[in-house]
């Protein structure tokens, strides 16, 4: 927690950092391109295991997590992220093409903060990211009012 303000001031006061986890290259590339176009910094990961590493290394502001992933799936990766004190506060948005009932409940159980169904247009994804970031910022602000002011 104490390192975080340094990180943010150091790299990108205005460009939130997004960790994008997806095994389908075209989707990864597309979202990356659009997120960068929309003013985000993007870090990519191809599977859950890689995502855990990047989440610690890059300390993103938000994680976009595809659920069906090789090596380690999105549910397991999210559980581990939420169990790790270094990454527990980073909001996770689950992203999946599986529209079957029960998937979103499973994702929430694993610790996901929001859930988006693919296909999801890049602009809709950006809207959701902004919404989650805003609500997280508000929560943080409410939790520790004095620090929020220094960040703002």
């Amino acid at each position: 927690m104490s390192n975080k303000p340094d990180h943010e001031t150091e790299t990108k006061p205005d460009r939130p950092r997004v960790l994008l986890v997806d095994d389908y290259p075209d989707a990864r590339e597309m979202y990356t391109e659009y997120l960068e176009f929309s003013g985000f910094e993007v870090v990519e990961a191809e599977n859950g295991m890689e995502a855990l590493q990047r989440a610690v290394d890059a300390a993103p502001d938000i994680i976009l997590m595809d659920l069906s992933l090789p090596v380690m799936d999105g549910w397991e990766a999210t559980r581990r992220l939420k169990a790790d004190s270094r990454t527990a506060t980073i909001p996770v948005v689950a992203l999946t093409g599986h529209a079957l009932a029960g998937i979103s409940e499973g994702a929430k159980k694993a610790g996901c903060d929001a859930f988006v169904t693919k296909p999801c247009l890049p602009e809709d994804l950006v809207k959701e990211i902004r919404r989650v970031l805003d609500s997280t910022a508000n929560k943080k602000a409410r939790r520790s009012g004095k620090y929020a002011k220094t960040i703002g």
């Binding site: 389908y24 075209d26 989707a27 597309m30 693919k118 247009l121 890049p122």
Partner: peptide, 8 residues
């Protein structure tokens, strides 16, 4: 999955 990329 592919349709997502096409529409995107």
């Amino acid at each position: 999955t592919p349709l997502n990329a096409m529409l995107g």
